[in-house]
Nucleic acid binder design. Structure first.
Lengths: 229, 229
DNA sequence: TGCCGGATTCGACTATTGGATAATGGTCAG
DNA sequence: CTGACCATTATCCAATAGTCGAATCCGGCA
């Protein structure tokens, strides 16, 4: 029992899941593999297997945007090492992944041997990123950290509803898709707005969007304000 | 008259505007310079000077997100060459700028001589981008092109309102800031939703967000897979 | 001058959203 | 078992959002 490892592979692309599973097979013997191809299944699988040894997570699953799922899952399951497997190999994305709690980042363009090396390293407790990526001192943008903290305070249902808000759905549509009454969704939305410290759904969606990918450029922050007149 | 050039410099950072103006002075004699530091002033200036020779536009002005302003202004003033001057020097951003109609892209980190070279090249009718950037065949993402097309169908007021929706403002707040009644804003919003082919403000905001910066990763399309087996 | 079309404006009406409160049932930890 | 928290639903109410029709303004243009 104790030496049988459990892996969760979350990616909406079946062929890619297969590739990942194959690579895992080369890293450990006798591994339990659980697959997820959507936010729904991912949540169910993670909740149902809190003792899993590793989560391989695609940054882009249907129903989840950018770092939201990573930040959320990490906050709920701190003992579950998570490796991001993404088509983006932008250094900024890699750094932000680690800052949001990932234990590794493996570009989808990696060679199989690289992929396996990454998995092994993380299983050994290391933080693994591609060669040439400098993690050093830079910290998570404070605004982004606040949003991540707010996300971590959400319940699983609330998180799911928030992601659906992020698709521009009406309460009524969300209620239908989740099979509950509109009143329930309204209660969730109210709770979400409170926890995210915003006043309406549009602002909640904008907050989530900031965890998507590019916190724009360098945001001139400093400077003035005077400009106005 | 005819040989006096008019330049529009749009950037919210006064010091940087000054630097740009100085560089322009080294490129042409006797130039009329008009400055803009916000979406409001930019719109006013562009509308009021349709015969300007060149627009130097920052990608990040308060009140405008990413490529929205570029796409919009280009569609309304096709004869106004526009050069993006941005702190981002990501090749993808440069390519998308050109795809959205810019005649050039000059990183803010450029040497002054480079900046001037870029301005001269564009004034000569060329398309100028930093060395090493390959513009080649790739086309604008079709979804992004649809959004840009929708933006180009908006009236100036509608565009301004849409950008304010993008900040999560209420109709009431927008009405106050623009000095009109809430009913007017509601009418604008309705028109915007129609033209953008969406059902509510949140979806409109999400569409605009897609022109912000990173059309996420490479959208799995191709590949994948092979890595496997 | 006078007409046309689009942009802008606005009020009235309806739909959706946001917020407060309350009640029920399930789960989990102490 | 009991209390704490979550999910669910309902009801009621106030605020916001969105639609429709209409008046006004404004820049061409015959």
């Amino acid at each position: 029992m104790t030496n049988k490892s459990t892996f969760i592979v979350a990616d909406d692309h079946p062929l890619f899941r297969e590739a990942l599973i194959h690579a895992i097979g080369n890293c450990v013997e006798d591994a339990d593999i659980i697959e997820a191809d959507s936010l729904d299944t991912l949540q169910a699988v993670v909740e149902g297997n809190p003792e899993a040894d590793l989560l391989l997570l695609d940054l882009n699953m249907p129903g989840v945007s950018g770092f939201s799922a990573l930040a959320y899952i990490r906050s709920k399951h701190e003992s579950l090492p998570t490796v991001i497997v993404s088509a983006m190999d932008d250094p900024a994305v890699i750094r932000r992944s680690i800052q949001h709690g990932a234990s590794g980042f493996i570009p989808k363009s990696s060679a199989i041997s690289t992929l396996e090396a990454g998995i092994r390293a993380v299983l050994d407790g290391e933080v693994w990123v591609p060669d040439g990526i400098n993690l050093q001192d830079d910290r998570l943008d404070s605004e982004e950290a606040e949003i991540a903290a707010a996300l971590s305070s959400l319940t699983p249902h609330q998180f799911r509803v928030l992601m659906m808000l992020g698709e521009g759905l009406l309460n009524k549509q969300i209620a239908y898709q989740l099979g509950v009454s509109e009143a329930t969704i309204k209660a969730h939305v109210t709770a979400i707005l409170r926890k995210m410290h915003v006043n309406n759904r549009t602002q909640a969606v904008l907050a989530v969007e900031r965890l998507r990918t590019s916190t724009l450029p360098v945001a001139e922050t400093d400077s003035s304000a005077n400009a106005a007149t």
